[in-house]
Design a protein around this nucleic acid. Structure first.
Length: 564
RNA sequence: GCGGGUAUGGUGUAGUGGUAGCACUCGAGCCUUCCAAGCUCGCUGCGCGGGUUCGACUCCCGCUACCCGCACCA
C-alpha cells in the first residue's frame, strides 16, 4: 500500500515536472482543456521529433523500406473496405420529430436476419423501405443514416455534395491504398516495406491515464509486403545470445532468445521474429529499460480475425504493463479487402521456377456465327461452351447461368486445342505490420529515465534520457555574467546552435548549481561552462549529466562531440 | 457514459459576501572562481458560464478538466 502511494506520488511529481518544464501538457488549457488531447511543449516538441527521427532512421537503414505520408482525412469507402466502419461504428439515424437518435440496425431487426452486417447503403435502403416508427415518439421521419462512434467523422466538401469521411484511426490504410505505386517503385519485386509517421484519431469513450489513451495520437506504422510462399531469409544470428522476456499465448512466460522461440514454433513466422528482433534493438536505442520490456503474444481469440500471429511489445511503467507496439502478421487481409472493394489489382507477380505448360482441349464459340445468333446471351453462351468437356457433341442444349436454355449448333462452336505456357501467377502479398504508439513510447522513455535522488521534497531530479532523444543537446552556462564571461557564453551558444541538428540553451541566471539542476531535470546530456580560464585560453568545462564529471575542452572539441 | 471526490500565481498552500496572503519557483540587481547558498527589489492567481446580490473567489445552477471506482479500450 505504501509502495502504491509512493508510486502515485512519484507519478504526480513527474507529470507536474512535465507540465512545468513544457514537455507534455494538457492541450487548450486556457479554454478549459480537452480530455484525451495533449500538447508537446517547447521541450517535448523536440523530444518527439528526435524519437521519430530515430525511428525513421532505424527502419530506412534496412534499405527496402520507404516512407510515405498520407492524408488523415479518409473517405468513408476506404474505411468501409478495411473493416473499420463495421468494427468501430454503430449506424445511427435521428428522428426528425423528437430528435431521438436510434441505431438503424437495431430498428431493422424485424426486417432483416442480420442488419448488423449490412453496409451503409444497404441499411439506408432497407430503412427507407421498411420505414419503422420511432421507438420514442412513433413518427417516421428519419435523417440519413450516419456512422457514429469511435472514429471522428467529417465531410469532404460542402452541403449536399459532401462525401462522408473519417479522420483515420490508423495510418496503415495509406500504405495499402498506395500499394500499386509501391510495387512499381520497388520494380515489382518483393519483399519491400512502406512506413508512415503521423496522427491517428479515435474518439475514445473515456480517455484516462495521461498520454496512454489519447483521442489524437502519434503513430508510426510499417507494412512489410512478402510472398507467403518464399522462405524468408532473415539473419537472426545477431540476436542469438540476447534473452528477451516472452509471454507466449500457449506456454509459460520466461526469457528466451528470439531465434530460439522461432525455432520452437512459439513465434509462428520468421518475418514476425525479424521485426520483433529489430524492434527490440530500436527500443533499446531509444533508451527503454530492457528489464521493463516484454513481448506478449495475443491469444487466438484476442487476435483480430485476419491476423495469423501477433506480438505486442509491452513496456512497464507507472500504469503497469502497457501495449506500445504491435507486431502482427496480417496475412493478405488488407490488400484483399481493398481489391474486392475497388476491383483494382493489388497483387504481385510470382514467376514459376520453370514455365508451366497447360494443355487446353475443349470448345469455344465461333464468334462471327454465335454472336448474331445469341445476341445479348452470347457472352454467357461462351462461358458455358468453354466449360464443356472435349467429348461434348453438337447440337446440344445448354443451360446458362441465368437459367436460360439455348440450343447450340455445330456451326456456333469450334474445337479449341492448344498448349498454353504460364510463366508465373499473380498473388496477393502477405503483410507483416509493426505498429508503434509514439506517445506511449515517449511516455515510457520519460518514465524509465526519471530519477529522483535524495530524500523527500528536496529530491534531486534527473532525466536520464538517451542523448539521441534528449530534447536539449547542451546547456551553455557562464559561471558568472560578468567580466565578459556572459558575452563569451552567448557567443559559444550561438556557435553550437548553428551546428546542424544541435539545439543548445543559454542559461545565465541563478547559481551555477541551480542551473545544472535545471538542465538535469529535462535531461540535457551535458553542460558547457564558461569560466575565468575560458577568457585566458579559450577552454571550457564539459559536464556530464549522469556523473557530474567535468573535463576541459576547446570549442572545437565540444563541437566535435556534439556532432558525433 | 455511471457513481464519488477535487479545482486559489509556475508549484504547494492560507483565507473572506466588500476581489486575496505565505513559502518555493521565476525575473532584475548585489554577492559568489563549478553542483538547487545568501541579501534587496519585482512579476504572476480565485477553472469556465449563468443566477442570487448594491457587490460573488466565497452562496445556488450548469459546464469543463483532474483523481478514484465501474463500464469501454479494433
Amino acid at each position: 500500500m505504501d509502495d502504491e502511494r509512493a508510486a502515485v506520488e512519484r507519478l504526480e511529481r513527474l507529470t507536474g515536472m512535465l507540465r512545468r518544464r513544457g514537455v507534455v501538457l494538457p492541450a487548450f488549457e486556457i479554454h478549459g482543456g480537452a480530455k484525451g488531447l495533449y500538447d508537446f511543449g517547447p521541450v517535448g516538441g523536440r523530444l518527439r521529433a528526435k524519437v521519430e527521427s530515430v525511428w525513421r532512421d532505424h527502419w530506412t537503414s534496412q534499405g527496402d523500406v520507404v516512407e510515405i505520408s498520407c492524408p488523415t482525412v479518409t473517405p468513408f469507402a476506404v474505411l468501409e473496405a478495411s473493416g473499420h466502419v463495421a468494427e468501430f461504428s454503430d449506424f445511427m439515424t435521428v428522428c426528425g420529430a423528437c430528435e431521438e437518435a436510434s441505431r438503424a440496425d437495431t430498428m431493422l431487426e424485424a426486417h432483416h436476419p442480420n442488419p448488423d452486417a449490412l453496409s451503409l447503403a444497404d441499411l439506408q435502403a432497407l430503412l427507407d423501405e421498411a420505414s419503422p416508427a420511432c421507438p420514442a415518439c412513433g413518427e417516421v421521419s428519419w435523417s440519413p443514416v450516419k456512422a457514429e462512434n469511435l472514429m471522428f467523422d467529417t465531410v469532404i466538401g460542402a452541403g449536399s455534395s459532401g462525401r462522408a469521411a473519417f479522420l483515420r484511426p490508423e495510418t496503415a490504410q495509406g500504405m495499402f491504398t498506395n500499394y500499386p505505386a509501391l510495387y512499381r517503385h520497388f520494380r515489382e519485386r518483393l519483399p519491400f516495406g512502406a512506413m508512415q509517421l503521423g496522427r491517428g484519431y479515435r474518439n475514445e469513450i473515456s480517455p484516462r491515464q495521461g498520454m496512454i489513451r489519447l483521442r489524437e495520437f502519434n503513430m508510426a506504422e510499417l507494412e512489410y509486403f512478402i510472398d507467403p510462399e518464399v522462405e524468408a531469409a532473415h539473419d537472426l544470428s545477431p540476436w542469438s545470445n540476447i534473452n528477451v522476456h516472452l509471454v507466449p499465448a500457449e506456454s509459460e512466460p520466461g526469457p528466451s532468445t528470439i531465434p530460439a522461440a522461432l525455432e520452437a514454433g512459439t513465434i509462428l513466422h520468421p518475418t514476425v521474429a525479424w521485426f520483433m528482433a529489430r524492434t527490440y534493438d530500436l527500443m533499446l536505442a531509444l533508451g527503454v529499460d530492457a528489464d521493463r520490456l516484454r513481448f506478449r503474444q495475443h491469444a487466438r481469440d484476442e487476435m483480430a480475425h485476419y491476423a495469423m500471429d501477433c506480438w505486442d511489445v509491452e513496456l512497464h511503467g507507472s500504469y503497469g504493463w502497457v501495449e506500445c507496439v504491435g507486431i502482427a502478421h496480417r496475412g493478405c487481409y488488407d490488400l484483399d479487402a481493398h481489391e474486392q472493394a475497388t476491383g483494382q489489382r493489388l497483387r504481385a507477380w510470382r514467376s514459376f521456377d520453370a514455365p508451366r505448360t497447360v494443355e487446353v482441349d475443349g470448345w469455344t464459340v465461333e464468334g462471327a456465327v454465335a454472336g448474331p445468333a445469341f445476341r445479348a446471351l452470347a457472352g454467357k453462351v461462351k462461358v458455358a461452351v468453354e466449360a464443356l468437356d472435349a467429348s461434348a457433341s453438337f447440337p446440344c442444349s445448354l443451360t446458362l447461368e441465368d437459367g436460360n436454355v439455348v440450343e447450340v449448333l455445330p456451326e456456333h462452336v469450334k474445337r479449341l486445342q492448344r498448349t498454353v505456357t504460364e510463366a508465373g501467377e499473380w498473388f496477393v502479398p502477405h503483410v507483416v505490420e509493426p505498429a508503434f504508439g509514439i506517445d506511449r513510447i515517449i511516455w515510457h522513455l520519460i518514465d524509465h529515465a526519471y530519477e529522483e535522488a535524495g530524500e523527500g521534497d528536496e529530491a534531486y531530479v534527473r532525466l536520464r534520457l538517451h542523448r539521441d532523444v534528449a530534447p536539449v543537446d547542451a546547456a551553455v552556462l557562464p559561471l558568472f555574467e560578468k567580466d565578459g564571461m556572459g558575452d563569451r557564453a552567448r557567443e559559444v551558444h550561438r556557435r553550437l546552435c548553428s551546428l546542424r541538428g544541435v539545439q543548445a540553451i543559454y542559461d545565465g541566471s541563478g547559481s551555477i548549481g541551480r542551473r545544472y539542476a535545471r538542465a538535469d531535470e529535462i535531461g540535457t546530456p551535458c553542460c558547457i561552462t564558461i569560466d575565468h580560464q575560458t577568457l585566458q585560453d579559450g577552454t571550457m568545462t564539459w559536464r556530464e549529466r549522469d556523473t557530474g564529471e567535468q573535463e576541459r575542452l576547446s570549442i572545437e572539441a565540444v563541437e566535435a562531440r556534439l556532432r558525433a
